[in-house]
C-alpha cells in the first residue's frame, strides 16, 4: 500500500492539511448556522419572505464552486486572503440546507401545539425557545449534517485558490500524475466527511424530541 506509506512518511503535512481543512469547514459551517438558522426562523414566521430567501440560497447553490471562488477573488478585503474567501464561499453553499431545514422544522411543529402555546399566553420568544426550536432541532441538525458533508467535499476545491486544506494534495497529485498524492488528500477528506456525518447524526438522534 504505497498510499499509506506515503501518508505515513508525510504524516506531519497530512495532519496539518487535515487541520486546515477542518478549520475551513468548521468556520464556514458555524457562520452558515449563525446566518441560516435565524433566517429560517424568520421566513417560518413571515412566509412572505420565504420565496425570495429560499430562491436566493438556491441560486447560490447552482453557481459552480470554482466560478464562485473566482467571482469573489477581486472583492477587496476578502480577496486579500485565500482562506477568508474560501470560508465565505463555503458558508454560502452551506446556507441552503440549513435555511431550508430550519424553515421546514419550524413549520412542521404541530399547529395545535402552537395554538395551545399562544392561547395559554406564551410570548413569541417563549414559544420559539421552549416549543418551536426544541421540536425542530433534529430537522435543523439534519440540515447542518448535509451542509457539513457538502462543505468537506467542496473545501478540497479551495486549494485551487491557495486556501490550503486537503485539496493541496489532490491538486498536487493531479499535476504530478501521482495517484498516491491524490489519495493522500482524498482519503482523509472522505474520512472527515464520514466522521462529520456520523457525529452530527449522533447529535441529531440525541436531541430528537419524543
Amino acid at each position: 500500500m504505497n498510499v499509506f506509506r506515503f501518508m505515513l512518511h508525510n504524516h506531519e503535512q497530512v495532519l496539518e492539511l487535515t487541520l486546515e481543512h477542518l478549520r475551513l469547514v468548521g468556520f464556514s459551517t458555524l457562520l452558515a448556522m449563525l446566518i441560516g438558522i435565524p433566517l429560517g426562523i424568520g421566513i417560518a414566521h413571515w412566509p412572505r419572505f420565504n420565496k425570495p430567501v429560499l430562491a436566493t440560497a438556491n441560486i447560490i447553490q447552482t453557481i459552480p464552486s470554482l466560478a464562485l471562488f473566482g467571482f469573489l477573488l477581486p472583492v477587496p478585503w476578502l480577496g486579500a486572503r485565500a482562506d477568508r474567501l474560501a470560508i465565505l464561499a463555503l458558508t454560502l453553499y452551506a446556507l441552503l440546507p440549513i435555511i431550508r431545514n430550519t424553515y421546514t422544522g419550524i413549520r412542521g411543529v404541530d399547529a395545535a401545539v402552537v395554538e395551545a402555546a399562544r392561547g395559554m399566553g406564551l410570548t413569541e420568544s417563549q414559544l420559539l425557545f421552549q416549543v418551536e426550536l426544541p421540536l425542530a432541532v433534529s430537522v435543523i441538525l439534519s440540515g447542518v449534517r448535509v451542509a457539513v458533508v457538502i462543505s468537506v467535499g467542496l473545501a478540497t476545491i479551495a486549494a485551487a485558490i491557495g486556501a490550503g486544506g486537503l485539496g493541496e494534495f489532490i491538486f498536487r497529485g493531479l499535476a504530478m500524475v501521482d495517484d498516491r498524492v491524490i489519495l493522500a488528500g482524498a482519503i482523509p477528506a472522505a474520512l472527515l466527511a464520514l466522521l462529520a456525518d456520523f457525529g452530527v447524526g449522533w447529535l441529531e438522534r440525541r436531541l430528537q424530541p419524543r
Partner: peptide, 12 residues
Amino acid sequence: GYVIQDVGLFPH
C-alpha cells in the same frame, strides 16, 4: 384557560 380539540400538549 384554553382547551382545544387536538389538545396540543407539548410532546417534548
